[in-house]
Design a binder for these strands. Structure first.
Length: 421
RNA sequence: GGAGAGAUGGCUGAGCGGUUGAAAGCACCGGUCUUGAAAACCGGCAAGGGGCGACCCUUCGUGAGUUCGAAUCUCACUCUCUCCGCCA
């Protein structure tokens, strides 16, 4: 949600910054609504003040047993105006909110301009592609031939875009999540949280998933939604609060299942477990002072990268261009892991600085040194998507005989085994 | 699912329909005292918004209603808690 005063101050700049994201200029409409609303509001407040003082007058006259008919008549006349002005103000305010809540965040000035993922900028690469002296297989070929990854039975149970992992692969998934949580809590200073995966719509509004992206989400049938990411409950941990200055930064991590309808992805990545309706993820969320959020963003990226480094998986980091960023983000780094079976880099983490975009929607503030109430900055990142990490291990650690080596750091979570089979 | 209780400022907690935006306490901030600290005493301390401004408006879970006037009365909803039943 945008600060209306910023739009008032420099509407041209506002429009230009959203054009970069493919949004039509709208400040003119916003400002005219805003002016109209404030006009109604000012008039309404004058009438309310008049009513209030007349009511006080009535009280005084009554206590002296004097006649109050005259005053009551006056108030009666004002009342109708107050009611209709209130309605008008509410309509204008609702319209204004509807416009504002559907506008994406403004990109940071250092975000590269671009239309789609082709315009993202590669920031760095780490490690090397593994060399195989045999034809490398894709993750589902490996998993299925092991008999530990079953899409057929999953579709019988739940339909398309689900998977059943068995035995060592199920354990590998568990080992990965445990390893990630241990890294983030022991080395990176995040506090592990166990959070609801069913949330109310105001929480999804807070993070920016609603009202615009309802079709990407699953509902529970009552008035709950299944979270598409733990970013939702973790970020909302600070909603409707004025935080203490020295409680910042806050760093949360959580391992949860995530649910996505993949409405816009029909026919995309249908084979394998790259794109599922349900997957698990270890999420990182930071709540910071505005002046610290850029630094916190870099720190978060390093925390996520650290997982891949420990697993010795080759990856690159890209800065998303204006056209490819998520709705709530002002700057996003994607980490893309190398998948030899797919012969490509695939997103395994996305780290975003949302600035005060989400905190405005959630009403989350802190008291600064001058005792002012300031919206906090919120950041979120995957640390990492567990399913995709499992894919990366299968494809990068595969052996010619159809086995998969277990990365050193995971072995202690898997009874010191060195191979899957 | 059945029965009941409740929702007030950072927290606890008062609040006859009329200077109650809200007592009191705690916490916090400033001051006096003290070599320093504690204690004691004095003072300050909700949020959002409008107006160039003096100021004004809104908010006591949310939304409607009654009234000249609502934290206080009525209705609906949401949420929390207790007991019973069921259950991981």
């Amino acid at each position: 949600m945008h600060d209306i005063s910023i739009i008032r101050t420099d509407p041209v700049k506002f429009d230009n910054s959203l054009i970069n994201r493919g949004v039509e200029p709208c400040s003119k409409n916003i400002i005219s609504k805003d002016v109209e609303k404030r006009k109604a509001q000012t008039l309404l407040q004058q009438l309310q003040a008049e009513r209030n003082s007349l009511s006080k007058e009535i009280n005084i006259l009554k206590s002296k047993n004097l006649d109050v008919k005259n005053q009551i008549n006056k108030v009666d006349k004002i009342k109708d105006q107050i009611i209709s002005l209130k309605e008008l103000e509410k309509i204008l305010d609702d319209e204004l909110k509807a416009i504002l809540s559907n506008l994406p965040n403004i990109p940071s000035s250092d975000v590269p301009f671009g239309k789609d993922e082709k315009d993202n900028i590669e920031l760095k690469k780490w490690g090397n592609k593994p060399q195989f002296n045999f034809k490398s297989k894709r993750h589902f070929e490996i998993g299925e031939s092991m008999g530990l990854m079953n899409f057929d039975i999953a579709s019988k149970i739940s339909g398309s875009r689900f998977v059943v992992l068995k035995g060592m692969l199920a354990k590998l998934e568990r080992a990965l999540s445990q390893f990630m949580l241990d890294q983030h809590t022991n080395k990176n200073g995040y506090t592990e949280m166990n959070v609801p995966v069913l949330v109310k719509d105001h929480s999804l509004f807070g993070t920016g998933n609603l009202p615009k992206f309802a079709e990407d989400l699953f509902t529970s049938g009552d008035d709950h939604w299944l979270i598409p990411t733990a970013e939702v409950p973790l970020t909302n941990l600070v909603r409707e609060q004025i935080l203490d200055l020295n409680s910042l930064p806050m760093r949360f991590t959580s391992y949860t299942p995530c649910f996505r309808s993949e409405a816009g992805a029909a026919g995309k990545d249908t084979r394998g477990m790259l794109r599922q309706h349900q997957f698990t993820k270890v999420e990182l969320v930071s709540i910071s002072k505005p002046e610290d959020s850029e630094k916190e963003h870099e720190r978060m990226l390093l925390s996520a990268e650290g997982i891949l480094q420990e697993l010795d998986l080759h990856y690159r980091v890209v800065t998303l261009c204006t056209g490819d960023m998520g709705f709530a983000s002002k700057k996003t780094y994607d980490i893309e892991v190398w998948l030899p079976g797919e012969n490509t880099y695939r997103e395994i983490s996305s780290c975003s600085n949302c600035g005060d975009f989400q905190s405005r929607r959630m009403n989350a503030k802190y008291k600064n040194e001058k005792n002012e109430n300031i919206f906090v900055h919120t950041l979120n990142g995957s640390g990492l998507a567990v399913g995709r990490t499992l894919i990366a291990i299968l494809e990068n650690y595969q052996t010619e005989d159809g086995n998969v080596a277990i990365p050193k750091v995971l072995q202690k979570y898997l009874n010191n085994k060195t191979f899957i089979i």
